[in-house]
Computed example of a mutant assay.
Amino acid sequence: MTNRLIGFRPGDSFLYQLSGASKLIFFILVSIACMTTYDTRFTLTIAVFSLLLFKAANIKFKEVSFIFFLVIVFAFINVLVVYFFAPSYGEKIYGVKTIIFQGWGRFYLSSQELFYLFNLIIKYFCTVPLAVIFLITTHPSQFASSLNQIGIPYKTAYSVSLTLRYIPDVQEEFYMIRMSQEARGIELSRKAALRQRIKGNLQIVIPLIFSSLEKIDTISTAMELRRFGKNKKRSWYSFQTFHKGDMITMFLAVFFLLVSFYLISLNKGRFYNPWL
């Protein structure tokens, strides 16, 4: 069960030595860069770079495989929906029509549409590995102090820290409840029918939401009793100053963002057209 929880896990790769703020800035700027351009050369480069960082973080794939499975399923559904509503959108973008499969009526497949859908899929692999790396390699307390370090109010930073801390707790409680239900004879594994699994998981999620709200109220009351938020500034136990690695990380983030803007100017739009 522990392997299925998404949250901070101790490690010894260089990514753990970076400040949480620098990793967040890198994730946000690179995500913006990948979302603003459809230049396949750029997005493929970022996707490969993200996967290399994922490997460098020494994160075992089996620990996060279900996340990638969900992303693949969502990407597949997204591609089907886009194709269903706009099967000729690619040729409108690139100004060329090269039919690969004639199909039926308006549902034919062209090289341009296939290329456009391929670009949509690549974007997932640009950002999802970075998000997983950020969650697993960043300690919530250290991340909160880093956010406050770059000028974000400490109340907001502490809220983010509590959120990151609470994600694994919610997941663990969910799996514990599900295991208890299965021990009572309620089948929720893959052996059960899909409808039964959905109904059973919903019966877990609803009480879990109410128990989570109750915990939030308890934490808020405890913080108020300790006069949290009285002062405008506070000190941090897990404080980390920016070092050379953080500077390089933020420089790369800005560099990737500027490259995406340059490619938009070079391509005279967001889309790279290989048929020109």
Rank of each mutant, 00 (worst) to 15 (best):
Thr98Met: 04
Ile177Asp: 03
Gln149Arg: 15
Tyr154Asn: 02
Arg106Val: 11
Arg165Trp: 09
Gly103Pro: 07
Gln102Pro: 01
Val132Asp: 02
Thr163Phe: 07
Leu130Thr: 10
Arg190His: 11
Phe174Val: 08
Cys126Ser: 04
Pro207Asn: 00
Gly90Glu: 03
Ser180Asp: 08
Ile209Gln: 08
Arg190Leu: 13
Leu109His: 01
Gly103Ile: 14
Leu80Gln: 10
Trp104Asp: 12
Arg197Ala: 07
Ser211Leu: 14
Tyr108Val: 12
Ser189Tyr: 01
Gly90Asp: 02
Ser212Tyr: 04
Leu147Val: 05
Lys155Thr: 15
Ser141Phe: 04
Ala193His: 10
Met176Pro: 00
Glu173Lys: 12
Ser110Phe: 01
Glu187His: 04
Ile133Pro: 03
Val128Arg: 01
Tyr116His: 13
Pro140Tyr: 00
Tyr175Leu: 13
Pro207Ala: 02
Gln171Asn: 13
Leu208Val: 12
Gln203Trp: 01
Tyr94His: 10
Ile121Val: 15
Phe85Ser: 05
Arg195Phe: 05
Ala144Thr: 02
Ile209Ser: 08
Arg178Leu: 08
Arg184Tyr: 07
Pro153Asn: 06
Ser145Glu: 08
Leu213Ala: 06
Val205Gly: 02
Pro87Asp: 04
Lys155Trp: 13
Leu120Cys: 10
Gly151Thr: 12
Glu113Trp: 00
Tyr89Trp: 12
Tyr158Met: 11
Glu113Asp: 11
His139Lys: 10
Ile167Phe: 01
Lys191Asp: 13
Ile100Cys: 03
Leu109Gly: 00
Ser145Asp: 12
Leu202Pro: 06
Lys199Phe: 05
Pro168Val: 01
Glu173Met: 08
Gln181Ile: 13
Met179Thr: 14
Val81Gln: 07
Ile204Gln: 03
Ala157Trp: 04
Ser110Leu: 04
Gln102Ala: 12
Lys123Leu: 09
Asn119Trp: 04
Ile121Met: 11
Ile136Gln: 00
Phe118Cys: 09
Glu182Ser: 10
Tyr94Trp: 09
Ile100Leu: 15
Gly151Tyr: 05
Leu194Phe: 10
Arg197Trp: 05
Leu117Val: 06
Gln112Asn: 07
His139Gly: 02
Leu147Cys: 05
Ser88Trp: 04
Gly151Leu: 10
Ile186Val: 14
Phe210Gln: 05
Ile186Ser: 01
Phe107Met: 15
Pro168Ser: 03
Gly90Ala: 11
Leu147Tyr: 00
Gln142Trp: 00
Lys92Trp: 06
Leu130Lys: 02
Tyr124Phe: 13
Phe115Val: 06
Phe134Trp: 02
Glu187Thr: 05
Gly185Phe: 05
Leu80His: 07
Phe115Asp: 00
Leu117Trp: 04
Glu172Cys: 00
Met179Glu: 15
Thr98Ala: 02
Ser141Glu: 13
Ile136Asp: 00
Ala86Pro: 01
Glu182His: 08
Ser111Leu: 15
Asn148Ala: 06
Lys92Cys: 03
Leu135Arg: 03
Phe143Met: 08
Phe174Met: 13
Leu117Lys: 08
Asn201Cys: 11
Gln171Phe: 12
Lys123Gly: 08
Ser212Thr: 15
Gln102Asp: 09
